[in-house]
Design a protein around this nucleic acid. Structure first.
Length: 203
DNA sequence: TGCCAGGCCCTCTTTAGGGCCTT
């Protein structure tokens, strides 16, 4: 598969349209199933983190006050990922924040997103839950030490992506897994995985 | 004042409702 960048945001809430902002971003570059580079930073947007999210992530308002400005961080992470395809767990969420934070620095996303949640629902239909943490346990992936911190979650999502790719190569005998194929799988109805893979099996 | 996300996906569906998933 092509080189991709797996990203994860921690934020003050669920919706940039409702005034929520990013508090932390991480991106890991995945090449040949291995993480070859990492970026992580807290960021200061001036928006207060609700107490329950402080408790969820461990990212406090004190930590954020000492963090670099969001504009500086977003500029750096956008340069870091370049035009690699982006991957995230529940990409609809990270895509919203990525686009909203980039818009504030007058930059635009150049690439598509791949969603490891949508792929997991199709490739691991029997998993009891498709939360990132549950999939880490289900697929026996390495635990990165924390949940709800950006770098650890990005690393675990990268492991998940690599495992999903392996499942397609192994169980489904797909000869060549590409970002284009992953986007076709995630965009097709859940019941049509085999149809997406038709004609792609190794001889 | 009161409310406050949104897309996917299943089913007791499709003229809809509700759980899942992200913070």
């Amino acid at each position: 598969m092509e080189v991709v960048a797996v990203i994860d945001f921690e934020t003050t809430g669920l919706s940039p349209a409702q005034g929520d902002r990013a508090t932390e971003i991480a991106a890991v570059i995945v090449e040949d199933g291995r993480i070859v580079d990492r970026y992580q930073s807290l960021m200061n947007t001036g928006v207060r983190i609700p107490a329950f999210i402080e408790a969820l992530t461990g990212i406090s308002n004190t930590m954020i006050r000492q963090a670099p400005p969001a504009a500086e961080v977003m500029s750096a992470v956008a340069d870091f990922v370049g035009d690699y395809p982006l991957v995230a767990h529940n990409a609809a969420f990270d895509c919203k924040f990525w686009d909203a934070e980039l818009e504030r620095i007058e930059r635009k996303r150049q690439q598509h997103f791949v969603c490891s949640l949508l792929l997991s629902r199709r490739i691991f239909p029997l998993a009891p839950s498709h939360k990132l943490g549950a999939l880490v346990e289900y697929a026996q992936l390495p635990f990165a030490g924390h949940y709800h911190r950006a770098l650890a979650d990005a690393e675990m999502a990268a492991s998940l992506l690599t495992r999903l790719e392996a499942e397609l190569r192994g169980r489904h005998r797909v000869a060549d897994v590409s970002v284009d194929l992953l986007r076709r799988i995630q965009g097709a109805p859940k019941s049509q995985l085999e149809k997406c893979l038709a004609g792609r099996a190794r001889a």
